[in-house]
Every structure is written in C-alpha cells, then in structure tokens.
Computed example of a mutant assay.
Amino acid sequence: MRRHVYGYFNRMRGLEASPSRAHIPHIIWSGIGAFLGIYLISVLNQYLFVNTADTLFLVGSFGASAVLLYGVPNAELSQPRNLIGGHIISALIGITVYKYLPLELSLLSALAVSLSIVAMHITRTLHPPGGATALIAVIGSSQIHELGYRFVLTPIATGTFILLIIALAVNNMSNNPNRHYPRYWR
C-alpha cells in the first residue's frame, strides 16, 4: 500500500525539464496572428451590433484557440479539423444540454464539458477551447440562450472560420519551413 501511494505521488514530479523558449520570430508571428484573428472578430462584432456592450462574437474560448493556432500551429490540437469540429460539436452539445435537461446549472455545466470531451475524442476533433465553448453555451448570457442553435453558426462557426483564415495566412508567411499550417485537414 505504501509503495502504491509513493508511486502515485512520485508520478507528479514530472520526468523532463521545461522546454526552451520559442525563438523570437516564432513569438512575433504568434503575436501577429493572435492580434489579427481576435481583431477581425472584434471588428465584425462592432459592425454587426449597434450596442458595443453586446460582445456576442467575442467568445472567450476564441482566445484559447488563438494561443493554439498561432502559438503552436503544428500541434495536433491546432489543426483545422480540431478547431472547427471541436468548437461546433461542443457548441451543439452545450446548447442541447442547456435546452433539454432540466438540471441545476452545476450539473449542466459538468455534463456539457464532459460530453464535449467524449464527443471530440470519438470524432478525433479534440480542441481544448471546445470545452470552454460548451460551458459558455450553458452559463452564457440570456442573449446566448436566446440564440439557441443559431449560437453554433453565429458566433461559433463564423469566429472559428475567421481564426482559421488568419491562421492559414499568417502561419504560412514565415520563412521558417517548420512553421507551415496546417499539417493536415482530415
């Protein structure tokens, strides 16, 4: 028993040293991509909504997607199928859970996120910000809840495609042969 407990806690030490810092050009390209992606979504939001307090297009999970798409564009979780599928599947699950299950908010939140993770694994579209998208669909404002399944198209699919277009443009501008995007589509 004691050995099992020791082994369990021993796993938490980590096995490797931290990776080194990214090269300056990689950091700069990451910043440019994130700036352009989020800026375009913000501008779209500004032109579509008269009341600038309505930030429907600025979904928090897009910030996390920007980190993946522009910071680690070669990562499996950053690829287009993961970005698009992860957000859309998770939005669908979040809306469905909120709309059809008469449970308390804490249970709805946990169900939306956990079911999204399972669905993303099954469909090979794991994208961590998708979990946040599912959660936003449950705990979001009344404006989000009023959209119902339209939330999947606008803002989720629209914002996701903006981030993808910017990722395709910016990640392929670098002269670094290792910074190309995507690694795969399917």
Rank of each mutant, 00 (worst) to 15 (best):
A17F: 14
S18V: 12
P19A: 08
A22L: 14
A22P: 06
I28M: 13
S30G: 15
G31A: 15
I32C: 08
G33Q: 09
F35D: 04
F35N: 03
I38G: 09
I38M: 15
I38C: 06
Y39L: 15
L40P: 08
L44T: 13
N45I: 10
L48F: 15
A53P: 00
D54W: 04
F57E: 07
V59M: 11
V59R: 02
G60D: 07
G60V: 12
F62S: 04
G63W: 09
G63C: 08
S65H: 10
V67T: 14
L69T: 07
Y70I: 11
Y70P: 06
Y70N: 10
Y70L: 07
G71Q: 08
N74G: 14
N74Y: 09
A75G: 13
E76I: 10
E76S: 11
P80F: 09
R81L: 11
R81M: 11
R81P: 10
N82Q: 12
N82D: 05
I84W: 04
G85Y: 01
G86R: 00
H87L: 04
A91F: 05
A91G: 10
I93K: 04
T96G: 14
K99W: 13
Y100K: 02
Y100L: 14
Y100W: 14
L101N: 06
L103K: 02
E104G: 09
L105P: 03
L105N: 05
L107F: 12
A110T: 13
L111T: 01
A112F: 03
S114I: 05
S116C: 00
A119H: 03
M120K: 00
T125R: 01
P128M: 08
G130W: 04
G130T: 02
G131W: 03
A132D: 02
I136N: 03
G140N: 07
G140D: 07
G140C: 08
